[in-house]
Simulated scan of single mutants.
Amino acid sequence: MKAEAFAPAKINLTLHVTGQRDDGYHMLDSLVAFADVGDRLTFSSGPNLALSVAGEFSSGVPIDHSNLVWQAAEAAGWTGSILLDKQLPHGGGIGGGSSDAAAVLRTATAQGSINANDIALSLGADVPACLYAAAARMRGIGEQIEPINLPPLPALLVNPGIAVPTGPVFSALQCRENAPMPARIPTFKTPVDCAAWLRNQRNDLEAPAMTVAPGIAAVLDALSDTRDVLLTRMSGSGSTCMALYPTLKAAHFAAYEIGVAQPNWWCRATMLS
């Protein structure tokens, strides 16, 4: 039996760090959305588990148990060959590995009787949200998922080719007891309305990430200089940054501008939802 799955990029529109538990896990309050760009996985059932990787960012991706794809398949009891087409940059704060793992769990659920929700959090804080794969509020240590209605958000994603490990970013965070988002997230009619509300929210990891990877600041500056930009923000723990625009045409125009100026950066105009 063969199957295919799409693993979309996960974008943190907000990321408020609200505390830290005694076991070391950080408490979060984050509004996440998903792009129409991402990795793709192809599954072929068989007696043994095997993983191969291709695509733009295949270099350096492990094909053994250290890969979350392998761990997800093993946890789900799925065996066979998996081809991972890696199109998302590594260490980019857009949930590439977590979204890949979630795609494995969705596929295993469709082919068997596993409860993917029981496995997801054991693989990482982003995996439950990636399993849902639609706009949501993510709280707790990642296990509390609340669906949120967002209008389609035209966006530009830019990564400067810097992989940022999450650990050092959290270590550089000065305060771990920060205010959450408002109790109620309003209903937005347009990207302009949404961006206006988001401007009053935060990514608490943005400043510490820039101490770990100063190149992030150049990306945010470049996005801020684009025409018609509504909002700029880093996603997750970096290094990918995003900007919101009133139309997809404006996002594509910004992608062209930045692509000409910085041809080595990864730039993708996309719709978030």
Rank of each mutant, 00 (worst) to 15 (best):
S81Q: 14
L248D: 11
L272T: 01
Q71V: 07
I119D: 00
W78M: 02
C175Q: 11
A73K: 00
G91Y: 06
A75P: 05
V69K: 00
R268F: 01
P151N: 02
Q20Y: 05
A195L: 00
A33M: 14
I162K: 00
A116L: 06
A172W: 01
F6R: 01
A120K: 03
P208L: 10
Q174H: 03
T187G: 08
G55C: 07
R21Y: 14
L41P: 10
A218E: 07
R202Q: 08
A195D: 07
G238F: 08
N203A: 03
A213P: 04
T247Q: 11
L231F: 14
A133S: 03
P128Q: 14
A196N: 12
M181F: 07
R268T: 14
T247V: 09
R176C: 14
L223I: 07
P62W: 09
G167H: 15
G112D: 06
W70C: 03
L31W: 03
S30N: 12
A103K: 00
D193K: 14
T79I: 01
G92K: 14
A72V: 04
D228C: 05
V260K: 15
R176I: 14
D221S: 15
L88R: 12
L28T: 01
G96D: 07
R176G: 03
G91V: 06
V61E: 03
F43S: 05
A7W: 13
D36K: 09
L157F: 13
F188P: 12
G96E: 09
S98R: 08
V164R: 09
L220R: 13
I162N: 03
N117E: 13
A217L: 15
T18D: 12
G167N: 10
Y25G: 11
Q144D: 11
M210L: 09
A251L: 13
R176L: 13
V127F: 05
A73W: 00
T107R: 06
L13V: 08
A116T: 02
P165Y: 11
C241D: 03
A261S: 09
A207W: 05
P8S: 09
L131I: 01
A3M: 02
P160N: 00
A129L: 13
S239F: 05
G77E: 04
A101W: 02
L223C: 08
P47M: 06
D36L: 11
A50L: 10
P154M: 03
P128M: 00
R21T: 12
G97W: 06
A243C: 15
A136P: 08
E4K: 13
R199V: 09
D22G: 15
L15M: 04
V212E: 02
G167R: 15
L150H: 04
T226R: 01
T270W: 14
S113H: 15
S59D: 13
A7Q: 01
V37K: 08
A116N: 10
G77P: 07
R106G: 04
P89E: 12
A251E: 11
G95M: 01
S122H: 02
G93F: 02
G55Q: 02
